[in-house]
């Protein structure tokens, strides 16, 4: 576990995170802008969906990152519970806000697409319902992590347990369209196989990489913010103690 514990020291983590944050955000932003411009302006219309296919370039990356965010929370929670790694809980808290944002973005763009494509804004089918549950899990996690951080050190174990339990929903979201008859279509892209024409596929992959870099940049920025917050609070506490002693 030597390489992981090298980052137990926040100073060492910050030396790496500080120069990485801005490049991730800039490269991610440029890639998202370029692929969305291409997807919204130049990509062809789809044979049945017409122009509404273009929402795919936001909807699918948002869905993947919404699920990827909780997967990151689950892995970090596991590390937190087993190795008590000091940065794991902070990383999980940092990933929850962009994760919740992308889960909501996925629900909203999906709803806008569903109106012309399916003829309805919303149905209670397996995929849509499990994705909505994921969004509510994010909100609960944020509330829980916020409450735990106010209780002082060593209280991040409760959100970590919640993060692991909530991970059960991730495979359910993925397999919902395969296990149950659903209105949502099955995955178009599986390992090594795509039912999507190349001009849609490559734009989608570029947008996904771009959104993922943005996600990474936001997580690093939020981790730095939480570390700075903790430091400021510790300093205030020390000063209060010194004032009390004097």
């Amino acid at each position: 576990m030597a390489p992981m514990h090298a980052f137990a020291n926040p100073a060492r983590f910050l030396r790496l995170a500080r120069p990485l944050t801005a490049p991730l955000l800039i490269v991610g932003g440029l890639l998202v802008a370029a692929s969305l411009w291409w997807g919204l302006v130049h990509a062809p219309a789809e044979r049945l969906q017409g122009d509404s296919v273009r929402i795919l370039f936001i909807h699918v990356p948002a869905a993947w990152l919404g699920m990827g965010g909780w997967t990151a929370i689950a892995v970090a929670s596991f590390v937190e519970l087993v190795w008590r790694h000091p940065l794991a809980g902070i990383g999980a808290r940092a990933a929850a806000v962009p994760g919740a944002f992308f889960a909501l973005l996925c629900l909203v763009t999906g709803s806008i697409w569903g109106r012309p494509a399916w003829g309805t804004w919303w149905v209670w089918d397996g995929r849509l319902t499990s994705m909505l549950v994921l969004f509510f899990l994010y909100l609960s996690y944020l509330a829980l992590a916020d409450a735990a951080s106010k209780d002082g050190d060593g209280q991040s174990r409760i959100p970590a347990i919640f993060g692991l339990v909530g991970a059960v929903n991730i495979p359910i979201i993925h397999y919902s369209v395969l296990w149950w008859n659903s209105l949502h279509q099955p995955p178009s892209i599986t390992l090594g196989k795509s039912e999507m024409a190349p001009e849609f596929l490559w734009t989608l992959l570029a947008a996904t990489v771009g959104f993922s870099l943005l996600f990474g940049g936001v997580v690093l920025a939020r981790m730095r913010m939480i570390l700075a917050d903790n430091q400021a609070e510790a300093r205030l506490r020390r000063r209060a103690m010194e004032a009390a002693d004097a």
């Binding site: 789809e46 017409g50 099955p186 178009s188 039912e195």
Partner: peptide, 13 residues
Amino acid sequence: LAKHDEKYVPREM
């Protein structure tokens, strides 16, 4: 309700 399948094909093709 219309159900879309997993295939995405441009109009021209």
